[in-house]
Design a protein around this nucleic acid. Structure first.
Lengths: 188, 188
DNA sequence: TGCTAAACGGAACAGCGCTCCGTATCTTTA
DNA sequence: TAAAGATACGGAGCGCTGTTCCGTTTAGCA
């Protein structure tokens, strides 16, 4: 189809993805662009031609994992698991994903123009699944029904910011509290 | 006491504080240092002499409000309010404070060296009050007792990041959920 | 009115994202 | 196989940051 690209270009794109993935692990997703370029053995121009914005690069690197998370959600929904437990398990997966990628959560909340690509990709995949999970749990009477998936995901994403850099801060615990807060309870 | 400073120095310090406060409102707490210096009509050197790090400047600007928040917590504790409600009201105050200062929450979670001043000041004041509020609510049997004030404040701070820039995201709502999650509930 | 220490100002340096265009390489075609 | 045209590459360079450093100015005192 769109395979009309030159061979070296395709090769460089793959090299860049590998290099970026490696650098992201080592130095976080906010590593200098130059570092990635050097690591891949290419020039600055090349990286920007393949990935016009950093968000494009990040999306390309993590696309698979986001898709996997989405599918896991669908499985959970289809499976026999209690809807509230399913929601909890899925959120755990999401948190694990964010927490293990140094600095990804920070990027997610970035309001800088140019990160819309990232928002779009992540949210387009995850919001629908999350919406269904929430609906199922609400239908089962386990949680309140007035919380939007978008808002919840943003909240969870925010709670994951800085996780792992501060021994006194456990994002998973706090996310668990947030999810617990979804339950119907005596508060108005 | 330490009033051994020259008159012009004291004047400049005040001018800088005013300028910084104004710029923070207009452009957020992450406004370029040059902007603040220009606004105050001083050079770069002056600003760095008075406030070696940005955190020092931020602390100086918001010191009063943090103190006010602390005192409000003490009042709430001493007053007749139900402990759980008191906790909720105090958290609301804190959230209001963070949300109205464009970008303050972002700074709070910054792990950059040099922001310890900010962490130290904010947390040194707020953690003790929050600890007491939590303890009171726990003693009244309203909430679980295994959540540290530090962690809760970090969580709330994180939830406030980016608030007000996204119409679909309401930090107050999510914080309320988090607090609701503190209640004893059927979940393990 | 000097004199000195304190304070000032802004040029200068370093690190970053991003662009731009001369050069090199691939691919196609004769 | 060789030449032409299209495509991709590389990295110097620009603009914007934070931060330092030191020659110059000025307040306060004798």
């Amino acid at each position: 189809m769109t395979a009309a690209k030159r061979a070296d270009a395709r090769r460089n794109q793959a090299t860049l993805l590998d290099a970026a993935a490696a650098v992201f692990v080592e130095s976080g997703v906010d590593a200098p662009v130059r570092e990635i370029a050097t690591r891949a053995g290419v020039g600055m121009g090349t990286i920007y031609r393949h990935f016009p914005t950093r968000a494009d690069l990040v999306v390309a690197v993590y696309r698979h994992q986001v898709d996997a998370c989405t599918e896991a959600g669908r499985s959970l929904l289809a499976g026999p698991t209690d809807p509230y437990a399913a929601l909890g398990q899925w959120i755990d997966l999401f948190v694990d994903f964010l927490v293990t990628k140094h600095g990804l959560a920070d990027l997610m909340r970035s309001d800088n123009a140019g990160f819309e690509t990232l928002h779009t990709y992540f949210l387009d995949r995850l919001v629908p699944v999350c919406t269904d999970l929430l609906a199922a749990a609400a239908a089962a009477g386990a949680i309140r029904a007035d919380v939007a998936a978008y808002e919840l995901l943003r909240g969870v994403g925010n709670l994951c910011i800085g996780a792992g850099q501060d021994p006194g801060y456990d994002a998973r615990r706090l996310v668990a509290l947030l999810i617990a807060g979804l339950r119907h309870n005596p508060v108005a």
